[in-house]
Amino acid sequence: MRLEGKRAIVTGGASGFGAGIVTKFRAEGAKVMIADINADAAQSVASEGDLVHAVDVSVADSVDAMIDAALGAWGQVDILVNNAGVTHLPAPLDTVTEEDFDHVFAVNCKSVYLTARKLVPHMKSSTSGTILNVASTAGVSPRPNLNWYNASKGWMNTATRTMAVELAPFGIRVNALNPVAGETPLLKRFMGEDTPEMRQKFLSTIPIGRFSTPEDMGNAACYLCSDEASMVTGVCMEVDGGRCI
């Protein structure tokens, strides 16, 4: 029960890595809000005692309502996991549409700003809190033709470090996870097409020889958000089977 008594919001918590984090947090004693743009999917992974909230993390009013709902139910939020993310399809950088570019940066980057703007003042008032940003190995060792997605995740790693430095005096820790591609709804979009040949191409770049799993992410997130990691902040942890070496 490493997270017993903790209250956590997990965005994008209805599927993939987010659902893995929700499952692990719940098993370790946390109260969890599953926040997702797909409310039906969020409800399907919820258990008794979980909060479920429909949110578009790229829209300020929607983010504010999510955090207000959590504070209204619990009085305090101890952990925020910024997991919701999107990508554009693989394409030469000069052919990605402006609409796709804006969508990637609104969901992957602006969302971190919006959640921080709303929740950090509450964490400062209690001189405690943990923020975990789910970035990607794409922001550390980028692949061709995912240029603007790569850039958004590099932004997230930099945001994590600067948030950690600024918020440390207030007792707030900020870390990130950099997973390699995994069995999530985004996998097909990363690859462009889900074929055995394309999967093997991706797997050939991962020394351990498999994709990241939701369980991998849940375990790493649990450590970084637990009191065991009380001296760990500003870390962008690669959970990638050696992909970035």
Rank of each mutant, 00 (worst) to 15 (best):
E4C: 03
S125V: 00
S15T: 11
T158A: 15
A159G: 13
T137D: 09
S141P: 03
R210T: 13
A30N: 05
V112Q: 14
N145H: 13
T23S: 15
S204L: 10
D240M: 01
D61W: 04
D100S: 15
L114V: 10
D50V: 01
D50H: 03
F105Q: 10
A91W: 08
A35Y: 01
F101W: 13
I172Q: 03
A91V: 12
V77G: 06
G209T: 04
G16S: 07
W74T: 07
M163F: 13
T233S: 12
P92D: 14
P179R: 02
Q200M: 09
V104K: 05
H122P: 00
M237G: 07
N150D: 11
N150H: 07
K24H: 14
L146D: 08
S136K: 03
T162L: 12
T213D: 08
M237I: 04
D64M: 12
Q200H: 05
L89R: 14
S125H: 12
R26G: 10
V180M: 05
V57M: 06
N157F: 03
Y113P: 00
I206V: 14
G5P: 03
V55K: 09
E197T: 08
H53Q: 13
N82W: 07
I21P: 13
G241P: 03
I245W: 12
G218A: 02
G29S: 06
G16W: 05
D94K: 05
G20P: 11
N108V: 07
V86D: 13
T127K: 15
A164I: 02
G154P: 09
T137M: 13
T233D: 02
K110R: 15
I34D: 07
A70V: 03
T162W: 05
N133S: 04
D61F: 05
A60R: 13
V165N: 09
R189E: 14
A46P: 08
S212A: 15
D36M: 01
T127S: 15
V174F: 01
I37E: 00
G192V: 00
L93Y: 12
A30I: 08
S58H: 02
V165D: 12
G139V: 12
G139L: 08
M198R: 15
S226Y: 12
F101Y: 13
I21W: 10
V45L: 01
D68L: 07
G29Y: 03
